[in-house]
Design a protein around this nucleic acid. Structure first.
Length: 518
RNA sequence: GGCGGUGUAGCUCAGCCGGUUAGAGCGACGGUUUCAUAAGCCGUAGGUCCCCAGUUCAAGUCUGGGCACCGCCA
């Protein structure tokens, strides 16, 4: 049995439509999942929707729908989007599903039994319009900022998880296991959040049903439902099989979470302490990425910075969008999205460097070698250099992908593309072909190019799967991506069989033109 | 107000524990080639490494102060 490995996207809140931020998270997770699958690991990849809570209940009511109908409708839209974009998730989980409800109740019960939960009565200023207690930040001159009304003093009783008792443990964990939250900047932020005097305290994990009914009932008090974050976070474990599926712990402890920096606190503080309080094991790591700034074009303020992935896919092709996000964003830092820059990058990398290499190689193979992978002669210095470049690329891609550094991984991969282009120019097969005595050299050159393209396609498969599949198909080794093992098979040489038919085909990545907005 | 981050060529960024003339990719410009998606290849262009002070034989790289932007908290 191969080694388990799991990855989760954030559990997206059932609200609106996916934009570039969600798409980026999902694409990174998909790329990671595809790579680990190709590395022969037993991969589980989960994404899904967080469907409970006040906001969903309110939105449903505004639409004249039941919460069930509303959340089902929105969830379908999201799932359809991921399907259209070819995201290879293993499960699209919804927090309204029965197994999740069981998981939440079991975990809440475990905390209750462990004495981690306390019932407390408190008083605060409640805004009827907001349907929640306000903090100072929400008010101006004693009025709710949103509703400009005075909040009522109100008493309420709720269940609290004694979260602050676990801060020392968490700080200690982050010292001993610095890789638990990556990159390090976010680990430091979490340490700052739980430092003495930072203000973070215990976590309210319930809502009285009279105020909110759209939630999972607390197992020890039917008058209350779970606070939405407490409910939502547990989805990651539900998907791994908690509590009853045999062997869930193994998968769970190999599970890596991928999130945006906006939800660092729930994932970096709430989640590990909740698990610790319930006496449950932790996932393997938390990987935190930055946000996309939208650089060009006027973006309507009311719509916000909405980049609709389907619209981009329609205009430019999803794989180019995907390539751009993975190549352009330094993991952990903010990135800048602009269609103009995307077009520029994609043309330079995918069309000019890679697409053209494939195109010239296959064209010459067709013209000079009857359209089959030729029988190579002796390998010289330049051929050995390409072979070394492939081995280097395979090793570097592996290292960077495992560290979530997709940008550096693609950079390393394109060094192989460049090396191969330089190699062709050095050998000049279009000249050599005119000299009958150099026939063997031509065959060796084109064999080497095909072999390099095979490595490139394999390494590229997790990033742009469709294009990589097309490349392999044209090289006469369709479906190889499904059987190959990374990184070893991308570094392997002399694996192509002479005589295999190749197909020239159309441009793999036609050059893009910037589409003008209407 | 507190804590943290970021500030390096037009753009996006590398530069680890301080050490030869500060790097890469893209773009720009010039040359060359024709197998190829007006692609490839070769070369060039020159940036006060945010500012000031300090430590050091030596500082983008360490220390202190300042400025700008961002994040978290209050």
């Amino acid at each position: 049995m191969s080694r388990p490995w799991a990855i989760t996207t954030p559990i997206y809140y059932v609200n609106g439509l996916p934009h570039i931020g969600h798409t980026y998270s999902t694409v990174v997770a998909d790329t990671m999942a595809r790579y680990h699958r190709m590395a022969g690991e037993d991969v589980y990849f989960q994404t899904g929707m967080d469907e409970h809570g006040e906001k969903a209940e309110t939105a449903a009511a505004e639409n004249g729908e039941t919460p069930e109908a509303y959340t089902t409708r929105i969830a379908r839209t999201w799932q359809t989007t991921w399907d259209k974009l070819g995201i290879s998730y293993d499960r699209f989980i919804r927090t309204t599903e029965p197994d999740h409800k069981i998981a939440v109740q079991r975990l809440a019960q475990a905390q209750w039994d462990a004495g981690q939960i306390e019932f407390r009565e408190y008083e605060g200023l409640y805004c009827v319009g907001c349907e929640r207690f306000l903090t100072e930040r929400d008010m101006e001159d004693g009025l709710c900022k949103d509703h400009e009304t005075a909040p009522d003093p109100r008493r309420e009783a709720n269940y609290f998880f004694k979260m602050s008792e676990h801060f020392a443990w968490l700080a200690d964990l982050l010292e001993k296991q610095p890789d638990f939250i990556q990159p390090a900047r976010y680990r430091n932020e979490v340490l700052a959040m739980i430092r003495e005097g930072s203000g973070l305290d215990d976590l309210c994990i319930s809502r009285p049903k009279e105020r909110l009914s759209w939630g999972i009932e607390l197992p020890f008090d039917p008058d209350y439902v779970c606070y939405v974050w407490f409910d939502a976070l547990i989805n990651y474990m539900t998907g791994c099989g908690y509590p009853d599926q045999p062997g869930w712990e193994e998968r769970w402890q190999a599970c890596e979470h991928l999130i945006g920096k906006d939800i660092l606190k729930p994932h970096g503080v709430y989640w590990p302490t909740i698990l610790h309080g319930a006496g449950l094991p932790l996932p393997k790591a938390l990987h935190v990425h930055g946000h996309w700034q939208i650089a060009d074009r006027k973006v309507s303020k009311s719509l916000g910075n909405l980049i609709d992935p389907l619209r981009i896919a329609e205009r430019y092709g999803f794989e180019t969008f995907r390539y751009f996000m993975l190549r352009e964003m330094s993991f952990g830092l903010d990135g800048s999205f602009s269609e103009a820059v995307m077009v520029e990058r994609v043309n330079a990398h995918l069309s000019n460097a890679l697409g053209n290499l494939l195109s010239r190689t296959l064209n010459m193979t067709e013209r000079y070698c009857e359209g089959v992978v030729p029988e190579p002669g002796e390998m010289g210095e330049p051929e050995a250099a390409v072979r070394t470049a492939a081995a280097t690329a395979a090793a570097e891609v592996d290292r960077h992908v495992r560290a979530y550094e997709s940008s550096q991984a693609l950079e390393a991969l394109f060094r192989l593309v460049d090396a191969t282009n330089k190699y062709v120019d050095l050998r000049e097969p279009w000249k050599a072909v005119k000299d009958p005595e150099r026939a063997e050299e031509v065959r060796t050159t084109l064999y080497t190019c095909c072999q390099a393209l095979r490595s490139i396609a394999l390494l590229l498969a997790p990033f742009v799967p469709d294009a990589a599949a097309t490349m392999l198909e044209r090289l006469g080794i369709a479906g190889l991506a499904e059987q190959a093992r990374l990184p070893a098979d991308a570094a392997a040489w002399d694996t192509l069989e002479a005589g295999t038919a190749t197909t020239k085909g159309d441009a793999l990545f036609p050059r893009l033109e910037l589409v003008a907005d209407e």
